[in-house]
Write a protein that binds this DNA or RNA. Sequence first.
DNA 1: TTACTAATCCCTT
DNA 2: AAGGGATTAGTAA
Length: 661
Amino acid sequence: MSFGGFFDNSPNGGGRVVTDIPYSNMPAAGALSQQRLVSPSLAKSMFSSPGLSLALQTNMEGQGEMGRIGENYDGGLVGRAKEDEYESRSGSGDMDGGSGDDQDAEKPPRKKRYHRHTPQQIQELESLFKECPHPDEKQRMELSRRLSLESRQVKFWFQNRRTQMKTQLERHENSILRQENDKLRAENMSIRDAMRNPICNNCGGPAMLGDVSLEEQHLRIENARLKDELDRVCALAGKFLGRPVSSLGNSMPHQMPHQIPNSSLELGVGSNGFDALSTSRWAEMFPCMIARTSTADVISSGLGSTRNGALQLMHAELQVLSPLVPIREVNFIRFCKQHAEGVWAVVDVSVDTNRESQNSASFVTCRRLPSGCVVQDMPNGYSKVTWVEHAEYDANIIHRLYRPLISSGMGFGAQRWIATLERQCECLAILMSTVPTNDHSAIEPADVRVMTRKSIDDPGEPPGVVLSAATSVWLPVSPQKLFDFLRDERLRSEWDILSNGGPMQEMTHIAKGRDQGNCVSLLRASAMNANQSSMLILQETCIDAAGSLVVYAPVDIPAMHVVMSGGDSAYVALLPSGFAIVPDGPGSGTGPNEPTADSKPNGTTTQISVGGGGGSLLTVAFQILVNSLPTAKLTVESVETVNNLISCTVQKIKAALHCES
DNA sequence: TTACTAATCCCTT
DNA sequence: AAGGGATTAGTAA
């Protein structure tokens, strides 16, 4: 042995010292490390060459390692006594395998070098290991004495045992990961299969290819392409995060996978639509849908100045404008890619982050499965936008009133994104076509554009304690009728206390789309008395296939003058209130193409029929400035005030539309 | 072959 | 110097 030798405790060994090279003869580390470059087999062949042996002997004098190799390979020169060692070191040349065999043949069969500790020894070692995998020197000495093992052997044993433990653990972990991986792969495959063999939504049977329109088939292909893109994104994201990211979520208890058909639309946004949908103007594009958004991390900012290849970790809060529908918090990775000339894709997929989820009645963490859009340039200068939205959500936390709407996709689904996008693009087109000029006497679109965006996105708010309150109710009137009623300034006195009991006058009207309902207007209430100046109200209304809004805020007349003469609208304090109107379910859309007249008979007004009954879900939201001191406390009285305000307003609306229950 | 184990080398602490 | 990671070598299943 290279070190001080050991006792052979095997049954036929009898505790004899089998080999010994004095430990003190170990070479310096430098010599050893050089030696390691030689492989055992090479060493063997070198040793068996007589011509080389002398030089090598000199070189390797006293090297325990080579001594061992010599023993191992020269045919059983084991158990050599010290004298033998000295003999060989003296250069007698008997390192040669042949001569070694001769020597061996004379001696009785020696114990092989292979050795294992006895079961008793192992048992003792194991029992100590169980208590203490890191015994100190004293414990090891004690054990070595008891087991007749060298303390070095005990040390090695523990060392090896620990590494063994570690590899076992690793192996176990690996097998778990592999299982998980297999499971995800299987799930992935089955979902992909399901996509390929779609089930008919109407009858539940397999959908015949002939059943679906050519357009739908195109959408399916688009969908599959998006899916492939997602898989690549997930792989990339996983590499970045150092853990696997699945593009398909594990269904959690009480969560229902929810799929919404794709929406497709041709938009006049041109190729810069890609830019708008990818990052910077995302939140501005969908102000009513995105309550808040931020980019947590930019993994890749894209190639050059384009957004192509951009990969970022994002956070967003998505909303439906009603207190009865919790805001959805989503954390996702967004990948932007130019597919081909004139084709761009923006793909989002949820990742699990360790962010504390603050789930409550009004806030819920939601998983966004592969979602996104493809923007495709069309020959007519428009862009075709295909939107896919997949999300997993718990239907139970959504109020019964809103479930049909949400499950139809008009709440968080592709339809709503597309409807909003269409409306916004229309508005942009109008604003773009009006070249802003500096010498304007009235409100110019350029000014208004900034102002109206701000009023929704980031209003300059008056300082102080603001009280906001909102409620949602079902009304047996069509969304269009309700919308038309609320935005009619001549009927304002029927519900608005700001009207002072009289009609309002529309002073300015700026169209933001083809539909009359998409506009910004400035209203003037009739004066309470001769001494008082009349109040101004800035109002924006909008309508698209997904729903409509009437939002208004009283404005300061001096501030309005500043804005109208070209001042900065960012300094105008706005505290908006208003209404959000959505259909009570699918099939009663309020799109601009829908007939205004409600032809549906509404015989039963007392019975609340939910689900595409042609009625509306009205959300009323009020904000009032309770106190202009930011330090002021909220009082019970002010809460009651705003509550009264809301319920009175709802009652008045119901009365005016003849639908009191 | 693979799995296991005793031991070694070499590096970090 | 001690401990640990990587590696080696002998052997069993």
